[in-house]
Design a protein around this nucleic acid. Structure first.
Length: 591
DNA sequence: ATAGGGTTAG
């Protein structure tokens, strides 16, 4: 299969990606200080650079400290003492926790109870509890404990690194300790604190072990999701170098990351690395590559790989098919997309709501409303429930095609059918009412949202402000702007474009720029006021290509296809170049 | 104990 993959011609320049070989297998404890460090390094990039540059001296001296010794002492000393809650000292709490080590739930509630009684937990009491949680494999409790610890970092009287040292109890490496480090690393990752998470990785290696492969995968995957692909790849290379075995999912993450960067050739080489490591590529890896090809505008290749997977008996699921269908839709190749939908069903895979939403999205973006509606029907007749994302696509399509009243009707119907409609769906409906000049109904919808405890954001306010403005109701527009600001929402660029119009209305001289012109022209057309838009256009002293583009666009939105076409021709004859894409939009509307 | 996709103003 690898041979086959590399035989696909990607048409991209080949780059050498082999990492510079490095013979040092040791991981460096990057900040070199003693006492285990603070988990607060300048940057993980710097840390990784250090890690990869490596050096031969170790840092053993910092392992020696007195904290771990006294943990045990405190525990033993306190063991024979009877204690009541009035006597809340560290040794009392630790020994009670140790007594409860076979009753983890009691230990947890004791821990919380004394906290409620005003006791401030410290490294000794925390480590006593954490050791119990680790012993019992209570990973979820462990995770939430660490997440809380990290979130309350400011109020703690100790550094988390001190706590980790205390957990070690002076023993070399214990399974409990590994669990604790895994939980800490995972917690940092789940809070998107990647620098700190990578620091933990250093700490573990320094102590002579590595986190569980699942934990490393979790870290790398999140790094990729946050577009920190180079960091993820650096960790992958380092893990391999220090002798840790990546699993099939590790490779899939690397493939996904490289594709995200657009490095398709390098992604293929990962398949070779898998082969060399004797790991059979799983569906994870192939799906990552298929999706990567599709998002890099090669759905044709993505589909080839998908079909090859069938030949190799790699289990391909609906997700992979959806990726390929989306790829073809993004390239406007709807026939291919439809035939893949059929192929998928022939193979016994059942399309899901994502499959349909991908297709419907494609049709809506190309103003093929009837196609979109037909698919929506197909979907529902197959018993697949629709949802607010699909509904929003359709409503938006209607608005874009100059059918705000149809959008409003559909919105009402979907609502009466009991379909949950979210903030986005509402915004589209509010916009549609504004375009129809039905401001009271627009307001009603927003009130309805407030009743349902939905959050109004900048978009909702901007839509409404623009709506009032276009009706010439400057006072109302201004008052909603005020309400928006009072709610702490900052107007963004779009809002300011609307505000520019307010200034213009306020007779502050006639100096709108072309953006303003475009908005006036297009919105007049959307509202069906094509004649007014024309009058406005021809009243302008200075007209440029953008102004004319807005008019062509406006004609299209108002379904005045003939006028749009005629204007296009006239412009072409006089050598005015209108924006790319308009002709396309025109032709799509015409079909 | 490691995954995953879609929509909104201009």
């Amino acid at each position: 299969m690898y041979m086959w993959l590399s035989s696909i011609r990607l048409g991209f320049p080949r780059k050498c990606i082999h990492p510079t070989q490095n013979n040092h297998n040791r991981l460096i404890f990057a900040h070199g200080g003693s006492g285990g460090g603070s988990f607060k390094w300048a940057s993980s990039q710097a840390a990784l650079a250090l890690w990869n540059s490596s050096s031969s001296h170790s840092d053993e001296s910092s392992d020696d400290n007195s904290v771990t010794v006294c943990t045990t002492n405190v525990a033993t000393n306190g063991a024979n003492r009877t204690h009541c809650f009035s006597e809340l000292d560290t040794s009392g709490v630790v020994s009670k926790l140790n007594c409860l080590r076979n009753e983890p739930n009691l230990a947890i509630s004791f821990f919380h109870r004394v906290k409620g009684d005003g006791f401030r937990h410290n490294v000794y009491t925390y480590s006593a509890l954490i050791r119990i949680l680790c012993c019992w494999g209570l990973d979820r409790k462990l995770d939430s404990l660490f997440v809380n610890l990290i979130n309350c970092c400011e109020d703690l009287e100790f550094e988390i690194s001190d706590l980790m040292e205390a957990i070690e109890e002076g023993i070399e490496v214990s399974p409990s300790m590994i669990r604790a480090y895994d939980a800490l690393l995972k917690s940092f990752v789940s809070l998107n604190m990647f620098d700190e998470a990578i620091d933990v990785l250093f700490q573990t290696k320094r102590r002579g072990f590595v986190p569980h492969i699942f934990t490393s995968n979790f870290l790398m995957n999140r790094l990729v999701e946050h577009s920190k692909v180079d960091m993820a790849v650096a960790i992958y290379k380092q893990l391999k170098r220090i002798g840790m075995n990546p699993n099939d999912y590790t490779y899939a993450i690397v493939i996904k990351g490289l594709c995200k960067k657009g490095s398709l050739e390098e992604a293929v080489e990962v398949f070779q690395e898998m082969q060399e490591a004797g790991v059979t590529p799983s569906a994870f890896a192939y799906t990552a590559y298929i999706e990567g090809l599709c998002t890099n505008h090669r759905p044709d290749l993505g589909y080839q790989v998908l079909q090859a997977c069938h030949g190799e008996n790699v289990l391909i699921d609906v997700y992979a098919y959806n990726a390929v269908i989306r790829g073809f839709c993004n390239e406007m190749k709807f026939d291919e997309a439809e035939s893949i939908l059929l192929d998928m069903e022939k193979r016994g895979l059942v399309p899901d709501s994502y499959t349909y939403s991908v297709m419907i999205c494609g049709y809506c973006k190309s103003s093929k409303l009837l196609k979109a509606l037909a698919l929506h029907n197909d979907m529902e007749s197959k018993g697949i429930k629709t949802n607010c994302v699909i509904v929003s696509l359709i409503l938006q399509c209607m608005c874009n095609m100059g059918m705000p009243s149809e959008a409003v009707d559909q919105f009402r119907e979907y609502k009466s059918l009991g379909i949950y409609l979210d903030e986005v769906s509402y915004n589209i409906a509010v916009d549609a009412f504004c375009k129809l000049g039905k401001m009271e109904q627009a307001l009603e919808l927003l009130e309805e949202m407030k009743c349902k405890h939905m959050v109004l954001d900048i978009m909702h306010y901007t839509t409404l402000i623009k709506g009032y403005f276009l009706q010439g109701h400057v006072v109302e527009a201004a008052s909603f702007l005020k309400e928006m600001k009072e709610k702490g929402l900052k107007p963004d660029i779009t809002t300011y474009n609307v505000l520019d119009l307010l200034d213009y209305m306020g007779a502050h001289g006639f100096k709108p720029d072309s953006v303003t012109h475009n908005m006036i022209i297009e919105n007049l057309c959307v509202g069906g006021k094509v004649k007014e838009a024309e009058a406005f256009l021809y009243s302008l002293e200075y007209k440029n290509a953008d102004t004319y583009s807005a008019m062509v666009n406006g004609y299209c939105e108002a379904n005045h296809t003939k006028e749009a076409y005629e204007l296009l021709i006239r412009l072409a004859k006089q050598g005015t170049l209108v924006k790319q894409g308009l002709a396309l939009k025109y032709s799509v509307n015409f079909v």
